[in-house]
Write a protein that binds this DNA or RNA. Structure first.
Length: 105
DNA sequence: CAACTGACTGCCG
DNA sequence: CCGGCAGCCAGTT
């Protein structure tokens, strides 16, 4: 097991998030087989802020509060989510009861 | 090698 | 609800 394989697992997990759903960093880490490594997920996604992000739906990952965190392009992420039908409440939060991706594999 | 930093999180006040 | 703090770990300086 090396770092790259962890990154691959993270990217693979993010790619499984269906359109119209979101997931938080901690859950992605858990599903990628890396419980407790939420921060590593953020680190992995941070490395996508270029052309590589083209094939990974990074915008579907938000923090545990249901808010967009210190993303590379917060405004862009918000628009991409809105375009998929995800709604934000008055506090710029996403309602997990409706949009959180519950693992269904 | 030590110190710092960051797309995180849960707990506490 | 918000800010601080301790775990967390890889990459940078």
């Amino acid at each position: 097991m090396n770092i790259q394989s962890h990154y691959d697992a993270i990217y693979a997990t993010v790619c499984r998030i269906p359109p119209g759903k979101v997931c938080n960093y901690g859950r992605v880490a858990l599903m990628a087989g890396l419980p407790g490594h939420a921060r590593l997920v953020g680190y992995a996604l941070h490395a996508l802020r270029n052309e590589a992000g083209r094939r990974v739906p990074w915008w579907r990952v938000v923090n545990a509060s249901g808010r967009i965190s210190n993303a590379y392009q917060p405004a862009l992420q918000r628009e991409l989510l809105l375009a998929e039908g995800i709604e934000f409440n008055q506090h710029d939060r996403i309602d997990f009861r409706r949009f959180l991706w519950e693992e269904a594999c």
